[in-house]
Computed example of a mutant assay.
Amino acid sequence: MSNINIDNIPNFDFSDAMMIPEAPAGFKSGFVGIIGRPNVGKSTLMNQLVGQKIAITSPISQTTRNRLRGIFTTELAQIIFVDTPGIHKPHHQLGQVLVKNAKLAIDSVDLLLFVVDGSVSCGGGDRYIADLLTNSKTPVILGINKIDEQPKKSEEINQSYIQLANNYHWTYTKFSAKTGAEIPQLQELLINQLEPGPLYYPPDLVTDQPERFIMGELIREQILLLTREEVPHSVAIAIDLVEETAKITRILATIHVERDSQKGILIGKSGTMLRAIGSAAREQIQKLISGKVYLELFVKVQPKWRQSRLHLSELGYRVEE
């Protein structure tokens, strides 16, 4: 990840910093959408595919909120992976925006990787997404994840997904996003499905998201990991200030919640929880920018922000075109 803070540079163009070379003869490229139910391991898979942490992961479902692009480049190909929010029945305006964005991704990519949880049998949520895909002309590969968590006798589980793939004439493959098992084979399979094309991004870039976005996601990840279930989905992060010097990067961020009780949980007794969140997030951000970080967090109550189109837009959540 570059240390360039593109948020503070007017009219920043990637080509100003890094020229995109011409692709060699026979080079393949394309956009691959990663879709599936919540908590099937899409973000963990994205990190494995690009070889670096760019998407937050959590045992709590529905943690991905923005379509995040990860970039994997070899001498022969470039794949732009589009990680999407889990497709589920929405319960508020935020959920509607997330699911609509995920559905939009289905027709805006060259290939779809439909990820399912291979530790359990195919369910109604998987079949719902499969039916959605019948209305799309985008080719689909069914990816059976979590093979490391399968029980010893997993024939019935595997067969339920193989049957699903056969019903729709899809290619299927098995892997573990957690351990990395069969990930190289998956990358090769995806490349084989792509058409010849150009380099869309510089070869050493792993995401097109600005550092501020990744910083906010790393803070939100620690909230997901450290707080109770009543808090995580009511949280949004705003990066208010990033100041870089030769010795340290100073970051001020606001955590938006919906209720006073959630604010109290995030701050904790005598500020212990907020300090724990800040300390853990700071360590992750230091890895991101390869330098020392001073991180200061504030908590603000924004009632019903998930129900308000205006508040969603202010916090960076909008239906993508």
Results as ranks from 00 to 15, higher is better:
residue 1 M to F: 10
residue 111 L to N: 07
residue 174 K to P: 08
residue 48 Q to K: 06
residue 291 G to I: 00
residue 204 D to T: 15
residue 223 I to H: 00
residue 257 V to R: 03
residue 162 I to R: 09
residue 10 P to D: 06
residue 243 E to T: 13
residue 37 R to K: 15
residue 274 L to T: 00
residue 132 L to E: 05
residue 74 T to M: 10
residue 309 R to L: 14
residue 35 I to H: 06
residue 267 I to T: 01
residue 30 G to D: 03
residue 251 I to P: 01
residue 113 L to W: 00
residue 109 V to G: 03
residue 56 I to S: 01
residue 257 V to A: 05
residue 76 L to T: 15
residue 69 R to F: 08
residue 222 Q to F: 07
residue 295 L to H: 07
residue 33 G to I: 06
residue 116 V to A: 01
residue 47 N to E: 04
residue 4 I to R: 05
residue 170 W to N: 04
residue 137 K to Y: 10
residue 93 Q to L: 11
residue 129 I to N: 00
residue 274 L to C: 00
residue 122 C to H: 04
residue 105 A to D: 01
residue 65 R to L: 02
residue 301 V to F: 02
residue 102 A to W: 04
residue 91 H to Y: 12
residue 111 L to M: 06
residue 234 S to M: 11
residue 158 N to H: 15
residue 3 N to K: 13
residue 92 H to T: 09
residue 123 G to S: 05
residue 135 N to G: 14
residue 138 T to E: 00
residue 63 T to E: 02
residue 11 N to H: 11
residue 170 W to E: 03
residue 25 A to F: 09
residue 189 L to H: 02
residue 280 A to C: 14
residue 292 K to R: 11
residue 85 P to R: 00
residue 71 I to K: 06
residue 11 N to P: 05
residue 162 I to N: 04
residue 301 V to I: 10
residue 269 K to I: 12
residue 14 F to Y: 12
residue 167 N to K: 15
residue 139 P to S: 07
residue 110 D to K: 07
residue 1 M to H: 12
residue 288 L to R: 11
residue 8 N to P: 09
residue 79 I to W: 01
residue 251 I to G: 02
residue 295 L to T: 06
residue 227 T to G: 03
residue 162 I to W: 04
residue 314 E to Y: 06
residue 130 A to C: 04
residue 259 R to T: 13
residue 239 I to L: 05
residue 37 R to P: 09
residue 32 V to C: 08
residue 278 G to H: 01
residue 169 H to Y: 15
residue 202 P to C: 11
residue 28 K to R: 08
residue 65 R to V: 07
residue 188 E to Q: 13
residue 200 Y to E: 12
residue 233 H to N: 11
residue 281 A to M: 05
residue 17 A to R: 13
residue 192 N to D: 15
residue 90 P to Y: 09
residue 241 L to W: 10
residue 113 L to F: 03
residue 268 G to R: 09
residue 312 L to S: 06
residue 105 A to M: 07
residue 5 N to G: 09
residue 263 K to M: 12
residue 70 G to L: 03
residue 68 L to E: 01
residue 172 Y to Q: 11
residue 165 A to H: 02
residue 246 A to L: 13
residue 139 P to T: 05
residue 204 D to V: 14
residue 222 Q to N: 09
residue 292 K to N: 15
residue 14 F to T: 12
residue 48 Q to W: 02
residue 116 V to T: 02
residue 7 D to G: 14
residue 29 S to P: 08
residue 252 L to Y: 11
residue 4 I to M: 05
residue 309 R to T: 15
residue 71 I to G: 01
residue 116 V to M: 09
residue 202 P to E: 04
residue 112 L to V: 06
residue 188 E to G: 11
residue 73 T to K: 00
residue 275 R to S: 10
